[in-house]
Simulated assay, not measured.
Amino acid sequence: MANRPTTKDVARAAGVSVTTVDRALNGRMKVREETLRRIAEAAHRVGYHGRGLIDHRLGLVVPRKRLGVVLVKRQQEFYQNFARELQSAMAARADVRGEVCIRFAASQAPDDFVTELLDLGDKVDALACVAVNHQKLDAAVQTLEQRGVPVVALLNDMAQGIRASYLGLNNIKVGRLAGWMLTRTIRRPGKLAVFVGGNRWHGHDLREAGFRSFVRGEAPGFPVPDTVVNLETREVTYEATLDLLRRHRDLAGIYVAGGGMEGAIAALREARAPGEVGLVVNELTADSRAALADGFAAMVISTPLAELCRNLVSLVVEGLGPGAEAVPGQQFLEPRIYLPEMV
């Protein structure tokens, strides 16, 4: 025990006097919050045995903020990355004792989202969620708002007019961007297919609308057949892509507006040469990165997750507290664009 860290070690690491460390420990005199936090960090860094007491003192002056987040598709790389970025964004805030409680809905059924939201609502100060559009979600968000628990919609803007804010991409512009890419890079005329996850994903509807609007107005020589609903699954997308390739020999491009891109990539690898059919997908993952590198994808439109999570935490900490001014109804982030030469 001879090398056990002392208050001198903490003081040296924090750049303060031993007297200041002593005041932080015994609480007999006030220590500025910034100094107290620096001492607490130094105590943890050197392994000081009394760091718990300093943490307790710090907790008396730093507010606690609990954020609940409901995501989907626990096994997908994108949502695993999302969960990690949420925790990192909250951990980076030194002005609150922040906690992020993340739940994954069991399915995309409205009842599963409602269950998680209402259960979390009793445990947190604010909620954020990636959820479908449905009247049951509207009612749940209304209930939470009446309880004083604001709800932020993520990626897909649900409960419009009820939720506190939306944070994500401008999905109309994302769809137009996909249309621009395919029509500008495909060398031969042909049909363009669109996949959406389902009619309850408002963001997918907006992406489809933006895509069709751009093609109709700027590249009418590319017919767009009926939209394919893929339920955001790899299996359905794979089979549907092979079916499209069989039925439409002039299929020139595919835009996957939601999840399930892995199925389209696998089908193109199996049935077409690289670049023979243009493909635009959303979110940079191991699969989409490989598709770019191998020439099967022309572009990936990606959500800047780190920025989104930082903005969400800031919104919850600074903009949704008691007595806070009204927050903007929508906060659009600029998408990150990845091309084959960038991976």
Rank of each mutant, 00 (worst) to 15 (best):
R32S: 12
S213L: 07
R23M: 06
P110W: 03
Y338C: 04
E208A: 11
A267K: 02
L67N: 06
R234L: 07
F332V: 06
G217V: 08
E34F: 03
A14I: 02
E318D: 15
Q75Y: 02
G47H: 10
E318T: 14
H248P: 00
A324G: 10
V196P: 01
R37A: 15
R289W: 02
T241M: 01
A94Q: 12
A131Y: 02
A264H: 00
D122F: 07
V46G: 04
T6Y: 07
P340A: 11
V281K: 01
A153C: 10
A139K: 13
I186Y: 05
A240L: 06
L315D: 04
E34H: 08
V16H: 01
G203R: 01
V256E: 08
P335F: 00
G221Q: 15
R207I: 02
R246A: 04
G68E: 06
G329D: 11
S213F: 04
L251P: 00
G275H: 11
V327K: 11
F195A: 01
V72R: 03
N156F: 03
L231A: 14
T285Q: 11
A240G: 02
G59H: 13
P150H: 10
K65R: 15
A109Y: 00
A193L: 13
A273I: 02
V31S: 04
T115C: 10
T185V: 13
R212V: 12
G260T: 02
L308H: 07
V152Y: 07
A252D: 07
A42N: 05
E99M: 12
G59R: 13
A267H: 05
C101F: 09
E270R: 15
C129I: 03
V21I: 03
M261I: 03
A209E: 12
I265P: 01
T233G: 08
Y238G: 00
K73S: 09
L120M: 09
K30I: 07
V70K: 04
H56E: 15
N3G: 08
R28V: 08
V96N: 06
I254E: 00
P189K: 14
G217S: 15
R28Q: 14
A291Y: 06
